[in-house]
Write a protein that binds this DNA or RNA. Structure first.
Lengths: 336, 336
DNA sequence: CTGTTAGCGCGTTCAA
DNA sequence: TTGAACGCGCTAACAG
């Protein structure tokens, strides 16, 4: 028994104030079932005068239906994820669903903890990043009856629905595009590839395409940090010290590529002609640069939108899993 | 009565499997109360074999204590707020609290809806942005027994605790600093001041300081959008068309200021000597520019940290409200 | 150290 | 169109 804090106003209090039963109030508030206009008005009146605040917790417990959505992202520092989050939020805005956010720092063990914690809130769906998870995470998500949406990657076997692109293909497309542009001496700058698994896949696709087409493997600088502007800046400085005669550098993400652009601006390197810079993601920040960044658009906005549409109309788990490939496209900027 | 989906595993199932009572399982899982090592082990074993997932909803309902934290931000596009969110997240990480995010688009009516929805989840605390809210929002927050933390602004009367800085003072400090640097012909570029109330306060402080010290009022360009890099870029182009002989332009935020810097780079305007650029926030992105941005650091990280510390040890509402001024400091960059 | 009992506040089912 | 009773899954209080 809980010390019934008599300050808390419940459905019952509203019901008494309106002279109806609790369930009637409940029906008015959820706009479910037939209610006469007269009682509806009286109830809403009573809600106002009592200052009643709905308790969804109890509602969810009783109905076994929640409108929380778990959103699990690797990071909020990398510019991509705030954009993804913004996209999800927009799509969610009208729906009455509330996002609960968890951040994993690209750590699959942390992801496991966050997923467990999310599930304990009985969300209507879980949106998480990538297709690789710990064994336990996978088990938990497979065993749950709610929808599980894996975003940003379409290069593998999903638990339920995956929405994204093949990062391996994006990597090869980058190589192909830059070879066609005439570049031959490649550099690569990226984050810790053990942690950022999608960067890892792009990197693989990129390297393989080069070697398969008789181009020398790229000179590489791999930071131990995750993606950041300053990381890209320092990375390029370092790479050019090691190997000054590169003619193009591919960055694992726009964040890092922007850092590369800054380095060129600061040191007077001519973008595109003297040194090509190529990113990944197609962030607004890259396109707002003095010279718009050459990069790959990952259609994040659509990914967020489709992710939400996937469960918004049907919260029940489908029998077969599905991959939705939202593809990617090359942005012909002015830096490569 | 709900159709009891017999697939859901409850405390009771675990209890049966372990041959103990439900409350014992509960105690083990919450590490509360004295439990013998033997039963603890047996219970944890049973949890594993049954694949039990804790249901916090029911727990919160029974104990009237939740560990959700409502975080309400105006936007996720403006670079500041992802950083604030990241700060809050870091501080929250160890604590077992989970953030629920709401976005208001700088709209006080949307804020009201979001607050109402947040409260219905019985969070342990609510963190929201700024000190200005609709009458209803204020009423709801005043009537709730949970902690309400208003961040980013210290220039007014808080509901419970406010953590931030005086934006008016930051505005005057900007003016003072730039006057001391020798600038005299001021421009100002900002977003819709009706929506971004903190930008509004800074702008006021800035203008008043100038006129009080006999400097001509700034030439202004006010966008109807909220803060963005491209907005700053276009704003500066437009402002210089109107008034080419400015010697310094103050931007309402780093985002917009970065756009201004880009315009200068693209058109060959010498930063600092030919035209000063000054921002607000001290974002990492501004400091990573080829020439670090001159701006004001708003100590967002500390704000997030203090916000969390405020409620983490004591969730009960204090009797008196309090303002914690985290201050600000000028970043002597290379753009003004 | 462990169990019993009695709700937390709401929504579902079924009856009126 | 409205209401009564029951229970969702868990935990506080008290007893043993």
């Amino acid at each position: 028994m809980t010390k019934r804090d008599d300050a808390t106003i419940t459905l019952k209090d509203v019901a008494e104030a309106a002279g109806v039963s609790g369930i009637t109030v409940s029906r008015v508030l959820r706009a479910s079932g037939p209610i006469s206009e007269a009682t509806r008005k009286r109830v809403l009146e009573a809600v106002k005068t009592t200052g009643y605040v709905h308790n969804r917790l109890a509602g969810v417990l009783a109905s076994a239906r929640s409108n929380l959505v778990g959103v699990i992202l690797p990071s909020l520092s990398n510019g991509v994820f705030p954009e993804v989050m913004a996209g999800i939020n927009e799509a969610l805005a009208q729906s009455g669903f509330q996002p609960v956010v968890g951040v994993t720092d690209y750590d699959l063990m942390k992801e496991e903890t966050v997923v467990r914690s999310m599930l304990s809130w009985k969300p209507a769906a879980i949106i998480l990043t990538g297709l690789q998870h710990s064994r336990n995470t996978r088990r938990m998500l497979e065993d749950t009856p709610i929808r599980v949406i894996e975003i940003m990657d379409a290069g593998g076997r999903p638990i339920d629905v995956a929405i994204g692109l093949s990062h391996r293909d994006a990597g090869s497309a980058t190589a192909q595009h830059l070879i066609e542009k005439g570049y031959r001496r490649f550099g690569y700058i990226g984050p810790d590839l053990e942690r950022d698994l999608r960067a890892h896949d792009r990197h693989e696709g990129f390297r393989h395409y080069l070697t398969r087409h008789g181009i020398a493997a790229p000179v590489e600088y791999l930071s131990r940090e995750t993606s950041s502007i300053s990381g890209g800046k320092e990375g390029l400085a370092e790479l050019l010290r090691m190997k000054p005669d590169l003619d193009v550098v591919v960055f694992s993400s726009d964040d890092m590529a922007i850092g590369g652009v800054y380095h060129c601006i600061a040191t007077g390197i001519q973008l595109k002609t003297q040194l090509g810079i190529f990113g990944f993601n197609g962030l607004d920040t890259g396109q707002s640069l003095p010279q718009p960044l050459s990069t790959i658009r990952s259609n994040r906005h659509r990914i967020g939108q489709i992710a939400v549409e996937t469960f918004i109309n049907d919260v029940t788990r489908p029998l077969t899993s599905k991959v939705i490939d939202t593809g990617f496209s090359i942005i012909h900027g002015e830096t490569a």
